[in-house]
């Protein structure tokens, strides 16, 4: 039996919608695990990424921890895939780029509605925010992009099956969308 393909996934500044869409491949996941072994993913709960064939990342880069995880993935994965709108262009989280970090923090923790005990959190455990949210390809080299908010399960399936079979990646028209 040929060796299984090792896949890792992570969610950075995303909403986990892309991972939900991945799970939406439903029973096809049984076919997938015939040929794929999962390393670090929110599904296995493995915390550190090891050497992998494919790394799939949901979400953009919004804080220092996102940068660290993304760089680890790039280091360990032969092929790195940006999954979804946020990973591809920053998406909804990047809408904060219209404001300064200070404005965002004040709105969230000081002046926003229904805030008790207003103060901007400041603890060494909390990853520092970047001044702008960035898509993945502005931080590391990305090999493939899978657009969509989220990409449909069918688009993810098309991508994974073509990639695993070593075919060129080509989507039917209805599987490419940005929303």
């Amino acid at each position: 039996m040929p060796e299984k393909i090792k896949v890792a996934t992570a969610s950075l500044a995303g909403c986990f919608g892309c991972h939900m869409s991945l799970l939406d491949i439903d029973e096809r996941i049984l076919d997938l695990v015939q040929v794929v072994d999962f390393d670090r993913t929110p599904i296995t709960d493995i915390k550190k990424v090891g050497p992998c064939d494919v790394g799939i990342i949901e979400g953009g880069v919004a804080n220092a921890e996102n940068v660290e995880v993304l760089r680890e993935f790039r280091h360990h994965c032969k092929i790195l895939v940006a999954m979804g709108a946020c990973a591809t262009n920053g998406g909804i989280p990047a809408m904060r780029n219209q404001f300064t970090l200070e404005e965002c923090l004040r709105e969230s923790y000081v002046e926003g509605m229904g805030i008790e005990n207003p103060m901007v959190p400041n603890d060494a455990e909390i990853p520092l925010l970047l001044n702008k949210v960035r898509p993945l390809h502005e931080v590391v080299k990305v090999d493939y992009f899978l657009p969509g908010c989220p990409p449909s399960a069918d688009a993810i399936w098309t991508f994974l099956t073509e990639l695993i079979q070593g075919k060129p990646i080509a989507f039917p028209y209805t599987q490419i969308h940005y929303d």
Binding site: T88, N89, N97, K132, R134, H137, E138, P147
Partner: peptide, 13 residues
């Protein structure tokens, strides 16, 4: 068949 914006975003105000 544009799958990514490829370039660095300006994020203009």
């Amino acid at each position: 068949g544009m799958l990514s914006p490829h370039f660095t975003h300006f994020f203009p105000l």
